[in-house]
Design a protein around this nucleic acid. Sequence first.
DNA 1: ACAGATTGTAAGTCATAACTTACGGTAAGC
DNA 2: GCTTACCGTAAGTTATGACTTACAATCTGT
Lengths: 107, 107
Amino acid sequence: MTYDTALTALADPTRRRVFERLQSGPQAVGAIARGLPVSRPAVSQHLKVLKEAGLVTDRPEGTRRVYAIDPHGLGALRGWLDQFWDQALTAFQSEVERTAKDERDRK
Amino acid sequence: MTYDTALTALADPTRRRVFERLQSGPQAVGAIARGLPVSRPAVSQHLKVLKEAGLVTDRPEGTRRVYAIDPHGLGALRGWLDQFWDQALTAFQSEVERTAKDERDRK
DNA sequence: ACAGATTGTAAGTCATAACTTACGGTAAGC
DNA sequence: GCTTACCGTAAGTTATGACTTACAATCTGT
């Protein structure tokens, strides 16, 4: 549930498609695999990685397993990202001003 | 400068260390490589990936090249993440309430 | 109890990408 | 102009991980 596992989890394209597919609501493994160009076991492995990253939760529903998005992993990612966001913005802004000043001074 | 390239770029651990090292301010390639357990060309390749992802900018300074964090890639990532954040939070909340209700009903 | 459905895991294959060394190019200093 | 410093790129090697098929386990319905 740290930000790094969430990053590596969301790096894979098909795993991202699995994750994005859960945005329309919780779904079972078979339903997720249906419509994806990979086999069902592959989806299972992807869901395992997403779960270990704190990005999804699973709950048994009869013989099938329903997966849903877990905000924990998303929160960790957002926190790490915000750690950069403000500082990078202000730094970039002052950088732009510095460059603009150099441009002016050169003329 | 799309969110997916930024994700795959930040997935690699050493590349993340390169990126995080720029948080303390712009730095040249050699300075970044010094202190990292990889060779300088490796750092160059990582910086190339980060640049293509819109996460860093580079500017020549004499014979060396200074890299800095670019908010563009971060913004794209944040936008994609926020697309999930609110919805996932509310969905998770209603899910918690649903489970709590089930717990109550069972007693 | 048995048959069908749904899923997780194991073993194996194969492509990707992270790293190294070697080389070429450009700017600065004597 | 020549050497030195700093950097990017090419080529090659190797480890990681994404995918497949095969199998075992669990739950439901008849």
